[in-house]
Computed example of a mutant assay.
Amino acid sequence: MRVALAADHAGFALKEALREDLAAGGHEVVDLAPRAPGPEDDYPEHAVRVGEAVRSGRAERGVLVCGSGVGVAIAANKLPGVYAGVCHDTYSAHQGVEHDAMNVLALGARVVGEALAREIVRAFLGARPSAEERHRRRVSLTRSIEARALQGGAHDRADP
């Protein structure tokens, strides 16, 4: 699988370990982070790079790493068609893909260790979206919320 990968200064070391693990696992890695972390290494820029790679089809999925995972997830979710989730366990990583169409994984390097992060990434990449009607319906509802927001419409009800 082609995987876009990036991290800010707080997640750089974990990103490097994940890059090596992904390549060893046969994945094509699109590393979108700078070669070395810097003081003005802002996570929103990395989130946009990975999100755009997924949106454009340059990558099938994305992995972002920052200190908590929260900042990169928030920034990535501002892009239409990007469904990023913070996951610090394997269940959420595969369930997010299977039930919620998650296409970008956000990890917190200050929250999970390297061994667990590797397992979480494997669970995320190994998962496939569910074909069950209830999951497809819920993903469709989420996408309709996104579409309406992009058109400037209000969303005051749970059903579109």
Rank of each mutant, 00 (worst) to 15 (best):
V3F: 05
A7S: 14
A13Y: 08
L14K: 04
L14S: 04
K15G: 00
E16W: 04
E16R: 12
A17M: 11
L18H: 05
E20W: 07
E20K: 12
E20S: 13
L22T: 01
L22V: 08
A24R: 14
A24K: 14
L32D: 03
P37I: 08
P37N: 12
G38T: 09
G38P: 04
D41L: 04
D41R: 04
D42I: 07
Y43R: 03
V48L: 15
V54S: 03
R58D: 13
R58C: 06
A59P: 04
R61A: 09
V63S: 03
L64H: 02
S68V: 10
A73E: 01
A76K: 02
K78V: 12
P80H: 14
P80G: 12
Y83C: 09
A84G: 10
V86Q: 01
Y91F: 15
Q95R: 14
H99F: 12
D100F: 09
A101E: 13
N103F: 06
E114I: 08
A115C: 09
L116F: 06
R118Q: 07
A123I: 04
G126W: 03
A127D: 01
P129C: 05
P129G: 04
A131Q: 13
R136I: 09
V139T: 13
V139I: 15
S140K: 15
R143M: 12
A147N: 12
A149R: 12
A154W: 10
H155S: 08
D156H: 11
R157H: 15
A158W: 11
D159R: 08
